[in-house]
Amino acid sequence: RQDLNFGQVVADILCEFLEVAIHLILYVREVYPSGIFQKRKKYNVPVQMSCHPELNQYIQDTLHCMKPLIEKNDAEKVVVVIMDKEHRPVERFVFEISQPTLLSIRCVHVDVCFCFCCCSSDSLLSHVEQLLRAFILKISVCDAVLNNNPPGCSFSVLVHTREAATRSMEKVQVIKDFPWIVADEQEVHMKEPRLIPLKTMTSDIVKVRKLLAAER
């Protein structure tokens, strides 16, 4: 248990959460036909997840490449962008991610070990599960506060990272044959977006600071 790598644990939890969140956003915002989604249970709530192999593989590859950045605390934001037929962003779901500082990582690491060794790991995991569930529930109902998107939309996942971290992304490219490029300005910025704060969450081991939806 002392060998437990805190960064990896956080990255695992966040990537699993982002996977569920991306599937749910694509379902709720009707980017794909509802027929490819199946009801599953995650974080003890029903969610809709795609059962289309090609789409699932794409989402998995995206998260696989992102994981090393999250592990090293190099991913500042993960943004799910919904684009219209002309590839202009019409909606963005912004996940601002921050991990505790190195010092607090160490402290929390001890806490985690303490929880695992002396208490029940169930209480810690159930706390994180509760927080992530709240995010998922917010996404499930976000269409109530968002306008309908035009037909024929697509999506993209953007990662805001520090310049120096781009090298590790290049490393992953070689392994996964899933190259990443710098996003075009027009894919990133929206003119006068309407910002809708959906949820903020903090816990000792995972921090997803803010979930924002922005629409044109």
Partner: peptide
């Protein structure tokens, strides 16, 4: 300095709605 923010995205695009509809029809 290495501190500037880069915004990265996968080079490949996800399958489009139409592509997915076609595969559903094939099935």
């Amino acid at each position: 300095t290495g501190s500037a923010t880069h915004i990265l995205k996968p080079l490949m695009s996800p399958p489009t709605r139409d592509e997915i509809l076609c595969t559903l029809l094939d099935l």
